[in-house]
Design a protein around this nucleic acid. Structure first.
Lengths: 348, 348
DNA sequence: GTGAAAGCGCTAACAA
DNA sequence: TTGTTAGCGCTTTCAC
């Protein structure tokens, strides 16, 4: 580095220091690196982006200088210039409510898949709750992924109104006009039905709530598969998705229908409630009554008796969600998609 | 709006369309609003920020115009100008490993608290895994919150090397030089010890791993409180934090020390493993052997028998973590802090 | 109470 | 292969 160049750089830095007294120390800019390397700023820009336009030697030299001077890329400047944020907002329901109790770490797996896929393609993941979603940063996101359990129609409309590419996690069949990624809830329900049939069960019941899109799909798959075998199932609606609610509903169910010999619960939490109530009522599980849950949670697998449950792959789902927003952002088309489910047979 | 003004705005928009053909449609800018309102851009800027410098009527008018024209704030421009990102990166271990299995939704609660506190103060939450942490956006964050279980020394050093304000979730006593927020693990351990003592237990054991900072704290609090009562505890180290590992370690423990009459496991998962092994070995829980876990997970509370466990408030912890990075970012000081824990007595 | 000027750091477009 | 020019949209002086 020549003396003149150093002077140049120092002068710049001094100027900066002067202008914004007290502001955060900022490192060198591309212009600084350019001055040091004796090239123009645009060449630095190209070199750092591995543009084929720049001479390999020049690039190597610039790279080296950047490293040596601790150069930090200014992403705001790029985003301003490029008019995109390279950011995807993920809207999650994070506040657990009694009615929508978290049945495990599943959103975390979803988030893991999303983050993995997005960050490896240059995007950042902006985490928001629906309540705090209307911030400028979120509005500026290039795309939105909407997670959250339940009948989140409102959330969907709200987010859609932002006019950004959007992908939703949930019940595929319910939202034709959206790009939705979800598990094949129908097939999951059918798997359970088939198992109940194979076990010779004749009076199965479903524990859940049709207002919840994914639960409704599970019920449909279940009821249809049973119907094909000439079996009619009973529907028991729960007011909440907790163990206690599952137990209460099961007690009521058996009071009204003492002949029930199989229960398919829309979630593992409800299933555990069902097992608990059944045992209390003196019905042996699984000898007298079979039980199956949904989600294949650690909770269910660890419970005694270990719960038979329908497994879904949340990490894969997260990756898929991320891929689809990316496609949408790039102006490509994206289709809704269902991930396969499989029944994990355990003790119930 | 006068014809001339409309022309102005349209001209601008046309120009924009021309320059960046195919680029994303961009809405009006402050300059556009200014032209429409017949004021200068800086007045619009001030009005939109509720600056007291601007006449209330002018402000109202500008606000209205902004709304009517669907004005969207450009956060990249502001950040570039202000030289900060108004962003906090949250580094989470999201990929569950056999050795560090997720024992519940706790990081989600932490994330919930963090997001709530941060977004309500104008910050965005940037979600990253440690693997993908070195992206420009993360590097540009105004602050970093490091989550993640276990002995994450490496992660800490890595993140600290970025030179950003940083706050860590974990074992407070282990990292004097960092700002750490954690539960009062020692007190938690002591609570369990006191209960075991009150129950008349004389041969208690700890199930965990001292290499894990938080676990070590739990053990210390436990052992010290017991020692004060003249009781010596046994330490059983587990190779992993899973139900199976907890069960194996418990079997080995009882083989070596048949007289064990109480087990304090460093996590609920391990505790469940302990209960399982004890029952298999014909030791009644809690009649012959008392068991306590840590985290007060849904998993433990739902298990049969319902697990006695030490509760920590993760949402509150998240809020605290967020508050401390904010303080650090603002150039204030922040101290490490421990959150109280409490013992939730259930069936074991 | 309002405005003019200037520039944050980067990159597309168009030369050379 | 490299450089010049210009400007993304915002806000901090400093002036009126």
């Amino acid at each position: 580095m020549s003396g003149a160049e150093r002077d140049d750089r120092d002068a710049r830095a001094d100027k900066r220091r002067q202008r914004s007294a007290g502001a955060a120390e900022t490192g060198p800019t591309m212009a600084d690196l350019a001055a040091i390397a004796g090239v123009s700023a645009i060449t630095v820009s190209r070199a750092l982006r591995d543009s084929p336009l720049v001479n390999p030697e020049t690039r190597a030299r610039i790279r080296e200088i950047a490293n040596r001077h601790g150069y930090a890329f200014n992403i705001s400047a790029r985003n301003l210039r490029l008019r995109r944020s390279m950011t995807v907002a993920v809207v999650v329901e994070m506040t657990p409510s009694p009615e929508r109790q978290m049945s495990g770490a599943y959103p975390l797996d979803l988030l893991g898949g999303i983050t993995q896929e997005l960050t490896s393609h240059g995007y950042s993941v902006l985490l928001t709750s629906l309540q705090a979603a209307a911030t400028p940063a979120v509005q500026a996101a290039d795309g939105v992924i909407l997670l959250g359990q339940g009948a989140h129609e409102d959330a969907m409309h709200e987010v859609r109104s932002w006019g950004r590419p959007m992908v939703v996690w949930g019940a595929v069949s319910r939202h034709e006009s959206q790009v939705v990624v979800g598990s094949d809830n129908r097939a999951g329900g059918a798997h359970v039905a088939e198992r109940f049939i194979a076990l010779g069960r004749r009076h199965p019941a479903f524990l859940g709530d049709s207002a919840h899109g994914e639960f409704a799909e599970r019920h449909e798959g279940f009821a249809e598969a049973l119907a094909r075998a000439g079996i009619v199932s009973t529907m028991a609606t729960v007011p909440a998705f907790t163990v206690a609610a599952g137990a209460d509903a099961t007690r009521a169910l058996l009071h009204a229908n003492p002949g029930i010999d199989a229960v398919f619960a829309a979630s593992d939490l409800l299933a555990i409630g069902a097992v608990r109530a059944l045992v209390e009522l003196g019905r042996a599980v699984p000898d007298a009554v079979s039980v199956a849950g949904f989600d294949d949670t650690l909770l269910g697998a660890t419970y005694v008796p270990a719960l038979t449950s329908v497994h879904q792959d949340f990490v894969e789902a997260g990756v898929l969600l991320a891929r689809k927003v990316r496609a949408l952002i790039d102006g490509d088309v994206a289709q809704s998609e269902m991930l396969p489910t499989r029944l994990v047979v355990r003790a119930t």
